[in-house]
Design a protein around this nucleic acid. Structure first.
Length: 185
DNA sequence: CCCTGATTCGC
DNA sequence: GCGAATCAGG
């Protein structure tokens, strides 16, 4: 598979949309995330401003090889990207360890909470909703919207291996029934 | 373990 | 130019 104009275009769009390299790779098909990242770099549009799911933070040490600091020239694309206010809708990361992390729902309100929650969930870009079905089985499968409706989709954020939901939806799904008393004996 | 992007370098 | 291997981090 080669990088046709359409594929490059889609790559650029999804990358600007905030999708991860592996998600884009899954959407394109027949490519690995490494291929996507490599192409992204070659196109000169690396380095996004987001800090979500677990990625860009600090650059690693330069070349450990004999090749010393051959710093790259600033591409015109970078300048343009930096100038853009970046109106990306990619604010979906509630930052689980952040503000709304430890909001334990009152146990008494479980029955009334269950119904409205899935509908009133966070926004996820359309491009990501489609790709989620392509991804592997370590993504959050919390349903959002009305099953059967055309705009129905799944959460899609990362879930720890084994668990079907991300941290946010896991806390909702598994409400402890601590109210109940053990009747072991 | 899973994931993320960044970089290098043989092809 | 391409992307697997590797790195560095969450």
């Amino acid at each position: 598979m080669s990088w046709t104009a359409e594929r490059v275009e889609l790559l650029t769009k999804l990358w600007a949309d905030g999708l991860s390299a592996s998600q884009i790779a899954g959407e394109l098909g027949n490519v690995t995330r490494n291929a996507v990242i490599g192409k992204v770099h070659r196109l000169g549009l690396s380095g996004r401003a987001k800090s979500g799911g677990g990625a860009t933070k600090t650059r690693k040490a330069p070349a450990p090889t004999a090749k010393a600091a051959t710093f790259t020239k600033p591409t015109p694309t970078e300048a343009v990207t930096a100038a853009i206010p970046t109106p990306t809708p990619r604010q979906i990361q509630p930052t689980v360890s952040g503000a709304n992390a430890l909001k334990v729902e009152p146990i008494e309100t479980i029955e009334t909470e269950i119904a409205p929650l899935p509908a009133a969930d966070i926004f996820i870009p359309v491009s990501e909703r489609a790709s989620i079905l392509t991804l592997n089985e370590r993504t959050c499968k919390w349903p959002i919207g009305d099953p059967g409706a055309e705009d129905f989709y799944f959460c899609g954020r990362q879930s720890d291996a084994g668990t079907p939901y991300c941290a946010h939806h896991r806390s909702i799904a598994y409400q402890p029934v601590s109210d109940r008393r053990r009747r072991a004996s």
